[in-house]
């Protein structure tokens, strides 16, 4: 069986909102170390994953490894019935075909229970090479959302150039072009005027072109974290990571656009 009590429903609500438009259904993999998920979108361009470690729950009990097939649209609707500050208890009894979600209000005077039907999903797991990235950018997640939204008005893709100076996002379209440069905070020629919280750690400069449609989907995870880590190497998928407090993370991998 699985019983996992999450002190704040808002965390689970935000996680589901940040993947439901990329993946329609997937298995939640539960083990004694926590709850995780990995799935690609239908076009095999973006992979979404998350991990919530067992110690983020209080208490957490999972007797054996489980794969629980969830339809995100249903889970999202049910989680809308939970208050942000409610406690959520996720419960699965062995061999059942439902997952129970119990929401308890902060004063414990209102307890609601919803059951969601589980699906039998034959999911494919991808093995992601464990690699060192040539460039690691860390920046404000709300700034990242704003840039993706602004550049979407210009074009369908963005070129991200990361150099020692900072990180530049550029888009070109039929009607014109636009770019935003975020300088590294605290760099010498930018003292006191840098955008707070931008850092670039690099082995060599990286330039990648990415679909803005996907990036705008990833920004739905911004409410989970003040910052986003963008890990890049030339010519390979980019990894975006939003930390979920100190209990886990959401990661997105996005295949780049390659020059013909």
């Amino acid at each position: 069986m699985l019983e996992a009590r999450l002190p704040q429903a808002s965390i689970l609500k935000k996680i589901v909102e940040s993947v439901k438009d990329l993946v329609s259904q997937a298995n939640f993999d539960c083990s004694d170390s926590g709850i995780s998920f990995q799935a690609m979108d239908e076009s095999n361009i973006a992979l979404s994953s998350f991990l919530l470690r067992a110690d983020g729950f209080d208490p957490y009990r999972c007797d054996r490894n489980l794969s629980l097939g969830i339809k995100f649209a249903s889970l999202s609707k049910i989680l809308k019935c939970a208050g942000n500050d409610d406690v959520v208890i996720i419960r699965y009894m062995d061999d059942a075909d439902i997952l129970s979600l119990v929401f308890e209000s902060p004063n414990n005077e209102r307890i609601s229970e919803f059951d969601i039907k589980l699906l039998d999903i034959d999911s494919e797991y991808l093995s992601i090479p464990d690699q060192e990235f040539e460039c690691k950018v860390k920046m404000s997640s709300s700034e990242f959302s704003r840039i993706c939204r602004d550049l979407m008005t210009i074009g369908a893709s963005v070129v991200i150039d990361a150099t020692k100076e900072g990180v530049k996002f550029s888009a070109t379209g039929d009607d014109g072009s636009g770019s935003v440069l975020l300088k590294q905070s605290g760099s010498i020629d930018n003292e006191g005027r840098g955008v707070v919280g931008t850092s670039v750690e690099m082995v060599e400069p990286v330039s990648l072109e990415l679909s803005l449609k996907y990036l705008n989907n990833f920004t739905k995870a911004a409410p989970l974290s003040d910052s986003v880590a963008i890990n890049m190497s030339n010519g390979i998928p980019v990894m975006f990571q939003f930390d979920v407090g100190d209990i886990g993370y959401i990661r997105y991998f996005l295949a780049p656009q390659i020059k013909d």
């Binding site: 494919e124 991808l126 093995s127 893709s157 390979i236 991998f253 295949a255 390659i258 020059k259």
Partner: peptide, 14 residues
């Protein structure tokens, strides 16, 4: 002009 790569070009199935 550029074209969208697939993740399957980079990641393998387990």
């Amino acid at each position: 002009k550029s074209s969208q790569a697939s993740l399957m070009n980079f990641f393998s199935k387990k």
